[in-house]
């Protein structure tokens, strides 16, 4: 089995762990960003009211229109939007990884798949929890459990890539039977 272990992967592993940690931190930032979406409708209505009241000074109107929404949900909605974009970029990256894994299997693709699959699953299950779990304490417990699951999954996949045949080769071996 030793012949199949990828040599010199420890640096790649370290890098992947660091990337994963950074991404998970970003995701935990972004998790909070869902509720500000609700704000948008209310903050759209409010500037209209302002506009009616200050009809006689047009310069102030534009300033107030732009100021009102940002003072309410500025960083929150930005984080939500960033998280949304991140999810889409990751999905497209995963779609692109499939042909790369087929034509150029190797440790780089193995670790990329480990990170991308874990994070995609983490974000996806996070959405499911957001939809179905209610109550502050339950949400906290569910998110902590999900974080633990994702960490163990990433560790397991990296262990598999380092000490075993790796994800690409594993799929290839199954399909060779």
């Amino acid at each position: 089995m030793a012949a199949l272990v990828h040599p010199g992967d420890s640096s790649a592993l370290g890098l992947m762990v660091r990337i994963m940690a950074a991404l998970i931190r970003i995701s935990s930032v972004c998790c909070r960003g869902v509720s500000p979406l609700l704000f948008r409708s209310s903050s759209l209505i409010r500037p209209l009211a302002v506009q009616k009241k200050d009809r006689d000074c047009p310069y102030l109107i534009s300033a107030k229109i732009h100021a009102t929404p940002s003072s309410h949900a500025g960083s929150g909605s930005k984080a939500a939007s960033l998280h949304w974009t991140g999810e889409r970029i990751l999905s497209i990256a995963l779609l692109g990884l499939a042909p790369v894994a087929y034509y150029y299997p190797g440790p780089a693709v193995d670790y990329s798949l480990a990170a991308a699959l874990t994070l995609h699953g983490h974000w996806g299950l996070g959405q499911v929890l957001t939809d179905y779990v209610h109550g502050d304490f339950k949400i906290k417990m569910a998110n902590a459990g999900l974080f633990l699951l994702s960490t163990v999954t990433f560790a397991g996949l990296c262990y598999f890539n380092y000490h075993d045949v790796g994800i690409c080769k594993a799929v290839a071996l199954l399909w060779s039977k």
Binding site: L125, G156, L157, Y159, F160, H163, A170, L173
Partner: peptide, 25 residues
């Protein structure tokens, strides 16, 4: 959810099971 669970079970098995993947295959 099923695929994510499958990946988690696979990863956990890789950590827990003593032998290598080709052996079990």
């Amino acid at each position: 959810v099923a695929l994510s669970s499958g990946i988690s079970v696979f990863a956990l098995a890789a950590l827990v099971l003593p032998e290598s993947y080709p052996y079990y295959l």
